[in-house]
Amino acid sequence: MSNTVTNVVFAGLGGQGIIKSSDILAAAAFAAGLDVKKSELHGMSQRGGSVTSDVRFGSEVLSPMVPAQEADFLLVLEPTQVEINRGLLRPGGVLLSPDLIPDGALRNKKSLNVAMLGVLSVLLALQPEHWEQGLKECLAVRLHKVNEQAFALGRRQGEARFKS
């Protein structure tokens, strides 16, 4: 197999859990034994400004940043951030926008980031146990249950949307 790298870009606003969701994906891919790199910019972006985070995984990953127009998936948590980031996608790349999760479907709105990972999981080859490990490693124990539910909800939405 040639070295195919999967490129995922997460985008949203500070405080939405962008970094956390990219951590979970990176941990899941790492648990699957793949080479993984994950990169984002910290700092001023924490104060409610735009945040993006890049996750790349495959047999060998070199640069930690997803080159513009090479993202396979663009996962966006905030509708206003869709257009400004669309150019990161490669031709044929998949945009996952927050309207994939119906309003009011989540018990806790804060777990939108994890619900969106559930949607993404339908499109990636990572196994359920890898996702489970990623979620467990990156979230505090008291948050496991609500986030597992959010992930499962996202996965159902993803299946309905992409597997029909």
Partner: peptide
């Protein structure tokens, strides 16, 4: 060079 997307700037909480 193509300019990177201009995001929302940070602000005081």
């Amino acid at each position: 060079e193509p300019q990177p997307p201009k995001g929302k700037p940070p602000e005081l909480c």
